[in-house]
Simulated scan of single mutants.
Amino acid sequence: MDTLRTVTLDTIDHGPVTFDCPSWCIGHAWQVGAGIGRNDITHNSVRVKAGVDTESHGWLPLMNAWVTWAPFVELVPVVAVELSVQADFPAEDVTHLMSGLDTVQRRLAVVAAEAIRLRGEIT
């Protein structure tokens, strides 16, 4: 596994836990002082986003996705997905929405392919 740094986090169940961070991990500042357990330690990649510009609602975020890996729980990296739109659309906006969903599909495929590629670095 290609690593950039070693990190130590204080956990509520195992005290200080030291581990290697993979190169794609954005860091663990969000977990410092969060009262986490060892199994909560999670590597996250940058987020990939998709949205759509509609006439009726303006810009709407549709999706966030990222590679994530809890090394003390999961054998390999997985893909975290947040889908986030709920609205009533005039029929004219459905074409815009479908275009945005096509973008979601393409970007999810890229993130999934990256997660699969990263498996080779840890196995």
Rank of each mutant, 00 (worst) to 15 (best):
G58A: 07
M98P: 00
E55Q: 12
V46E: 14
L75A: 15
D93C: 02
V52L: 08
R47W: 01
H57Y: 11
A65D: 05
W66D: 07
V78L: 14
V32C: 04
L75T: 15
W69V: 04
V94C: 05
E82F: 02
V81H: 10
P90Q: 02
V81L: 15
V94G: 00
V76M: 12
E92V: 06
F89G: 06
P71T: 12
I41M: 06
G37A: 12
K49E: 09
A29H: 09
V32N: 03
V85A: 12
F89A: 01
E55R: 15
P61V: 01
D93K: 03
A70K: 15
H96T: 00
A50N: 09
V67G: 05
A65I: 04
E55W: 06
V79E: 08
I41R: 10
V79A: 06
N64V: 03
L75Q: 14
N64Q: 15
G35I: 04
V78F: 08
F89N: 05
H28P: 05
S84Y: 09
F72R: 09
K49V: 05
K49A: 05
V48S: 12
A65K: 06
W59D: 08
V48R: 12
R47H: 01
A91P: 00
T95Y: 03
G27S: 07
E55I: 07
G51L: 07
V32M: 03
V52N: 06
T68D: 03
H96C: 03
Q31D: 09
P61H: 13
F89H: 02
D40Y: 07
T54I: 02
Q86C: 05
S56H: 10
